[in-house]
Amino acid sequence: MRIFGLNRRIVRALLGSQYAHMLEYRAEIALWALSGVLPFIMLSLWSGSDARAQLGLDGVALDRYFLSAFLVRQFSVVWMVYAFEEDALLGRLSPYLLQPLHPLWRYVASHLGEQLTRLPFAAGIAGVFFLIQPQAFWIPSLGGFLLAWIATWMAFAIAFLLQSLIASLCFWSEKATALERLLFLPFLFFSGLLAPLTAFPPAVQDWVRWTPFPYLIDFPARVLSGDAVNLAAGFGAQLAWVLLLLPLVLLLWRAGVRRYSAMGA
């Protein structure tokens, strides 16, 4: 029986092969993991600044928030549009389209394989962080950890769907990655990666809550760091964004594939 075109054998083959593939690139992935140090730089800046009081994160709460933001980013980073653009330009997409499996699953599997490869490096960086800041060490409760895991995967799902939407535009324009840059900018500033959402003026906060960005970093990071957060509202918003984006992506994808005429057309 296949659910969304998947059964256990297909899942195992996809994940196994993609994980093996990603392990080959472990040096690269280690460097990618290291290039996510921005939250730590912002932490050192925020913790010494006069503006810290307005964040509502006292003492070690700020350290934990930024460490959680780092970890959430590590496991929700999406680069699908770049891989897809290359596949579409070079015509590698054609054989994928012939397979009796939605090509998007292949990209999902390679992201999951990459996350698994990243795990030891991200854990290592977190370990170094705790060596430098031992007072910030904490072990989330099992329930809290599971909730944070789900929130991170939901964040990954939203980010993946957003990029798939842009990737589907590759069927019409060859330079869709330029649009990804425009999407990345609001993500960078409003997701909570550089500043917790509470740092922004209330008017900006109210407005940002209607975008998907705070649910990509800020919400999962707060769940992971054990901050008081409205779980129902957060998960509800995440689910709403997934439910909104999924049909859009599938529709646009189907229209795009009809247009697609392989390489050189």
């Binding site: 690139y25 040096a27 690269e28 460097l31 990618w32 290291l34 290039s35 996510g36 140090v37 921005l38 730089i41 050192s44 800046l45 913790s47 010494g48 600044s49």
Partner: peptide, 27 residues
């Protein structure tokens, strides 16, 4: 030598982003 270490420039880029703010703001 190492074709794969090209991404090290991304690490450099992340560290250089600290230059957005005055040096005295850091520990």
């Amino acid at each position: 030598w190492f074709v794969k270490t090209w991404n090290a420039t991304e690490v450099l880029r992340a560290v250089l982003a600290s230059g957005r703010y005055p040096l005295e703001a850091y520990p």
